[in-house]
Design a binder for these strands. Structure first.
Lengths: 194, 194
DNA sequence: AAAAACTTTTGCCATTTGGCAAATAATGAA
DNA sequence: TTCATTATTTGCCAAATGGCAAAAGTTTTT
């Protein structure tokens, strides 16, 4: 299958956070590698040191771990037009306690550690742009998680439906239930009640 | 009352994230202002554009907001040796939806927007240091919030006791209950059961 | 010390959510 | 298509948590 990816989404996204000239844009495009994942494929695995950062051109990923009970927990979903990386492990070069899996078929634009270093060394604005992106993504996560604690399960589900209108019916209930912090059967009943 | 603050904690904290020479350290000290808050005082208020960043030399702050039910929610606590700022509002200069209140008497080292700009312009490592601090703080928040959804109320309370061993008995139950996402009476019962 | 204001605990009962296992439904492979 | 596998729903009941208001306890003010 021939893959056609213009990388426009990536470039437009970066441009939201800083200016780039055409030469810089071309360099970024050359450093990015297209990676196609099928639903269920893993982008990164627990126990390994992540070596890549991905921009999601199409599709949805989820970040997961196993809690002390051995239950698989979906920590969060990442959708199109966002970067996916385990910041902790990537920056500190320590093995990740989390893994990243494709929830749907995905098209990713992947940067290796080396590519990122090159970009950082070559494009003066790069670090600033990445900084802003990182900060925004983290703040969003906090702002999404925080109110969830104060809401009941049904409300959390309804809010999820709003944020990912067409996802809820395409992914296993168990993924969603663990993200919402409820059991699968409870979620099934909540769903029914709507 | 005479206030004696060496700012050692602040400087040591900054040095964890980057190197600074004595001249730079002195500049930072000169730019910081000591602010004493009494328990219950507000550091910043909702609806206003925050103009300051605080390093907590002593004491504990909490970041709060009112949810759609009109309930006051404690989004998180910030304790000694951490910076407190509403990143969203501060960076974008938009009115905050949150307010920050002293949970205990506090000694803060406060930087104004202008001071921060000066430091950023004068100390070449400054932005990098602030970036690392910000990222670390945000990642910690996500990592603390995320598993809470998967735990029951009692476990959340026990974990809080571990993290803030001597705080739980010094703050109103209501603060803690809203942080843990449970009602005050439930927390009272949980406490009793231990 | 007494009163007022505020915080925490408790009782009572309703509602929500969980746990487990069986039944159904949906999906994918042969 | 048929079988096997996996995902979802459901029943039954237990456990956790909430809602509300009154009681008990604390702190602050006068």
């Amino acid at each position: 299958m021939t893959i056609f990816v213009t990388m426009d989404k990536l470039i437009n996204y970066l441009l939201e956070f800083g200016q780039l000239n055409q030469q810089q844009i071309d360099l970024i495009k050359r450093k990015a590698q297209v990676l196609e994942l099928n639903k269920g494929d893993y982008f990164s695995e627990a126990g390994k040191i992540p070596k890549q950062v991905a921009f999601i051109e199409k599709g949805i990923l989820r970040v997961c771990y196993y809690n002390s009970n051995g239950d698989e927990i979906t920590k969060y979903f990442i959708d199109e037009n966002n970067f996916a990386v385990d910041i902790n492990s990537f920056n500190q070069k320590i093995p990740s306690s989390e893994y990243v899996q494709a929830v749907t078929d995905c098209t990713l634009l992947v940067f290796s550690t080396e590519s990122l270093n090159d970009l950082s060394a070559t494009i003066i604005q790069w670090d600033g742009i990445i900084y802003k992106i990182t900060e925004k993504a983290l703040v969003e996560k906090v702002n999404k998680l925080s109110p969830m604690l104060a809401e009941d399960a049904k409300t959390r589900y309804l809010n999820f439906l709003e944020k990912f209108p067409n996802l809820a019916n395409r992914i296993p209930l168990s993924y969603l239930a663990s993200y919402l912090g409820i059991t699968q059967s409870s979620l099934s009943r909540i769903r029914k009640s709507i």
